[in-house]
Nucleic acid binder design. Structure first.
Lengths: 150, 150
DNA sequence: ATACAACTGTTGTATGTACAATATATAAAA
DNA sequence: TTTTATATATTGTACATACAACAGTTGTAT
């Protein structure tokens, strides 16, 4: 099904405009899908993203700014996002005594356990989302997307 | 610059995961870029999207549900979104006397004029965003994105 | 040592998003 | 005709996003 059919676009559009619309649409769609799968765990896609980043630190604490630069959505209010995760005891936060401007943020055992439960749901989404494409096509798509994100 | 570099991803990931991350990232990036360009006009990308849909109606009034199904982001609260546009006098809204459940929503002259001012800014973004790709690559990318959006 | 600049994070506020509950109008069924 | 179902839009509420202003901490230059 083409984006024109989905959005009932009647007039022909340029390839560039089509790409922009498709990326915007696919981005929203993917985010909604992910949020739906994360809802039973009471997490948003941004919160999940942060947990993933912290797991990737393999024990090393991260600061707010490190988290921020690695987040898919840079516009989140990371302070308040971390607040939520701390409330849920998925993340711990303390001031860095070496440099009291910084925070030392780590994922807790409960956070890691939660991620283990979520992983298969996300994997499932990823494989469903890319089901129509062969691995070769995916590689090709990724190469083109690399070029798009300058 | 690869998505791994941008997001400082260290471990290798599958092509499927890479596609999902790239789409999510590109979607957020595009939306932010668009919002930035729309800000001087005091519009969000969703509001702009609605104005575009209404212009596409070529005079025919649209109902809320028509607008909703054509919007890139289906989750918007369309009632309140239209409220804003009506407040700004970019859109007019009246109940359909044939079927009083429905609304007749049209873009005003001021709305059309605003769009004409915005068009070049958006065109500029679209061409910058796709600058690194040839037209052939864009076509190819769009074909792959078609397959992705099932 | 003091002043100034840069870094890091927090808070305030307006707006947008998500989603369920509700209201009202029309259509269909009994 | 009355009841029930469906269509269409609105409202309420909790939460998230955007972004500017602020505050405290450390680094640098004089």
């Amino acid at each position: 099904m083409s984006i024109e059919t989905i959005l009932k676009i009647k007039s022909p559009i340029s390839q560039a405009k089509r790409t922009v619309v498709q990326i915007l649409y696919a981005g929203e769609f993917f985010r909604d899908q992910l949020n739906g799968r994360l809802k039973p765990f009471n997490l948003t896609s941004q919160q999940y993203n942060v947990l993933r980043i912290l797991r990737g630190q393999k024990g090393n604490p991260a600061t707010l700014s490190i988290i921020q630069e690695r987040m898919i959505n840079k516009n989140s209010n990371t302070t308040r996002l971390i607040d939520k995760l701390v409330d849920k005891k998925l993340v711990s936060r303390k001031v860095d005594l070496e440099n009291r401007r910084k925070l030392k943020i780590t994922i807790t055992k409960k956070g890691l356990k939660t991620l283990l439960n979520i992983d298969p749901k996300v994997d499932d989404f990823e494989s469903k989302a890319t089901y129509n494409l062969t691995n070769k096509e995916l590689k090709n798509l990724n190469k083109l997307l690399d070029k798009l994100i300058f």
